[in-house]
Amino acid sequence: MKITLDADKCCAAGQCVLVAPEVFDQRDEDGIVVLLDAEPPAGQHDAVREAAAICPAAVIEVHE
C-alpha cells in the first residue's frame, strides 16, 4: 500500500489522525495533515482505508 496526499485540499478536520494515528498527524500551526508513513505495514491498512473514506475533503489517496 502507498499513500499520497493532496494536502492543499485539507480542511484540518483531523479525522485521519483519530482513525490512524500512526500514519497521519496534523501540523501544529494550522492542523493540515502530515503523512508519517507513506507505506504503512499491513496491520494499518484497514485503518488507512477508513481514514481515506472518511476524510471530508477527499485528501487521502490509497494505492494498492
Partner: peptide, 10 residues
Amino acid sequence: LPPRQVRGLR
C-alpha cells in the same frame, strides 16, 4: 485552537 487541543475536546 491548535489541533491537539481540538482533538482533546472531541
